[in-house]
Design a protein around this nucleic acid. Structure first.
Lengths: 346, 346
DNA sequence: CTGAAAGCGCTTACAG
DNA sequence: CTGAAAGCGCTTACAG
């Protein structure tokens, strides 16, 4: 481990404390504390002596004890699932950005149930994090505003304005528009969309998928086309079910724009099952540009919203907020259309 | 948030403490503490009064403060990357299993650099976790044994015996054997393998990939075939590079067994680029059975080692260890061959 | 069964 | 610039 004192032959060893360091350096614990926090008001030689003692004892401050008075240097991150193709990339971006700071991220799983998400966020709060990044929360605006009042908060993938927290979103409306225009430009007129239930969120404070659906509908109308939405869910199975439903109709669409890549994969599976050639019989597009989308055997046309950049922006904003900023910031990333073989024959 | 006291119009509100609860219930803080930990020696009416006060104040114990004396009810999990297709599934399994217990998981990213992994583990330790699950650590056995002496520890995906921690592994040797026998049974004799550097780990204390390679080599020799290993890495690019190298030879293999699915995807990309038909010109197999492997357009033959079950077992063992068990346990999961279209023509 | 007191390892005003 | 003292919110022996 990071320390070595009283090495009993087998049992756990005692961890060095600030008191041990103070004793070894012949100074007060207050002095050690100042060096630890690189606070002002320490002479160079004091700094040196303390630093040497810290190294010699392999001392590491106890985060829990620090958190009781000052900062814990921990930021909490909540994502809905660890094993989804998109959100962990956001966490990865946060982790990379935090690498250069004294902050350490801890990630918890919130699930999609609002109550479970609340409990996960509370668990983070109980651990005295200095701030939180919340990805795709299915909870009320009021509850999030309360959270933001109690602790520096950045919300990812949720639209609308806020008073007490920052927001990082992709311009989902614009992204959906890019897809629709691309498909219409190829001559498609019957373009269907697979969506996800709004989760009871309404108005401007909605999650990405609702904005995508709105963007799709607006773009279709603008082109004089009839929107056609099937709401199943952003899962492989959801896309699969939606595709079978749509293609079983008398007058099926010639293109399906799935709200998420994971659902688009389900659409492709259904298309394969029905013996449809992609893109000749059916064009397919997704959203997110997850790693699989770029695979040669998949070649999914989709929208890149850069999960890593999202995480980077979220981490940066959170640090600013921890440092004292209170005015809410809304950071919007620009989506980019990635055209591949599921819409364009080579 | 989980509490509501002194609601300043805008600023953060003060969190209820054990003292507030004691005052509201008209009892001592010691009594509240006992109820919190469901310790013995509390009368039913005391229990009721305290519980009511806890609910009324929306009180939640502060994990940092608890951790200073007793348990923090937090278990730390370290995985190498958040955005890899396999390890987060293990974390998911841990999270699900912990859902029924008072423990909360927190996950950190360790990366593949041993020093970075150490720092991540230390960060967990600083946060006073009650135990840790370490997935695929690239560090010395001595260091892990030291960690295990200081804190209940379960190591995933690392082979060999241990004195101070538990181990959860899949029988990688057997899994590799299943793949080789499957391919040989199809008539292949030139079967190549793509591996990953051992990372300096030797002897019995190696990570999964080294065991897989050993299993491959042993199975080949047993069948009187010549092992043929290219060590690149368990990445898409690694598989891609290995495949181009192998297929560029005068006498190329007819089958490639990639050590991990992610590398197998790279092999498939290279095969597509070279215009090779799979499985007719080249059979491809992987290992891990990640979600993509089962996709209709991929259909990758692979080995299922059940990441969720791995996480479940790890969580269960860790809780036993926190409860006091000291004898090391080694839990071995049985791999299962998943035959799909990259080796078997339909 | 109940509670007063000490202490966990830090940081934060406050004297000097 | 330096340090003694108080206190953060809990749990743990220890009396009663």
């Amino acid at each position: 481990m990071a320390f070595d004192s009283a090495p009993g032959p087998d049992g756990p060893r005692r961890r060095a404390t600030i008191r041990d360091v103070a004793l070894a350096a012949g100074v007060s614990t207050s002095a050690v504390s100042k060096v630890l926090r690189s606070a002002s008001g320490v002479s160079p030689q004091m700094h040196r002596r303390v630093s040497e003692a810290i190294d010699a004892l392999h001392y590491r401050p106890h985060a829990g004890a620090r958190g009781m008075r000052g900062a814990s240097y921990t930021v909490g991150v909540m994502i809905t699932e660890f094993s989804s193709p998109f959100q962990p990339e956001v966490a990865e971006g946060i982790s990379m950005t935090l690498g250069d700071t004294p902050y350490q991220e801890i990630v918890v799983r919130g699930g999609t149930d609002p109550d479970h998400q609340r409990r996960s966020l509370e668990a983070l709060f109980d651990r005295q994090v200095d701030g939180v990044v919340v990805v795709a929360p299915w909870t009320s605006q009021a509850w999030l505003e309360d959270l933001g009042r109690d602790i520096p908060t950045v919300v990812v993938a949720r639209h609308g304005s806020s008073r007490h927290f920052d927001t990082v979103v992709s311009d989902d409306r614009r992204g959906a528009q890019l897809v629709v225009e691309h498909l219409a430009g190829l001559g498609h007129t019957r373009i269907a969309h697979t969506g996800q239930p709004s989760g009871g969120l309404r108005g401007q404070h909605v999650l990405s998928h609702t904005e995508r659906q709105r963007g799709y509908e607006a773009a279709m109308r603008e082109l004089g086309l009839q929107p056609d939405v099937v709401v199943t869910g952003y899962t492989e199975q959801g896309g699969y079910d939606a595709a079978h439903l749509l293609m079983g109709r008398a007058d099926p669409p010639t293109a399906i724009f799935a709200g998420a890549d994971i659902a688009a994969l389900g659409v492709l599976r259904a298309a394969d099952e029905r013996g449809l050639r992609v893109p000749d019989d059916l064009a397919v597009a997704g959203y997110d540009d997850i790693a699989v989308a770029g695979m040669s055997r998949v070649g999914l046309t989709t929208v890149d919203e850069s999960a890593q950049d999202t995480g980077h922006a979220a981490a940066r904003l959170l640090i600013e907020r921890i440092a004292g900023r209170v005015e809410p910031v809304r950071f919007v990333l620009s989506p980019k259309l990635m055209v591949r073989s599921t819409t364009l024959r080579s």
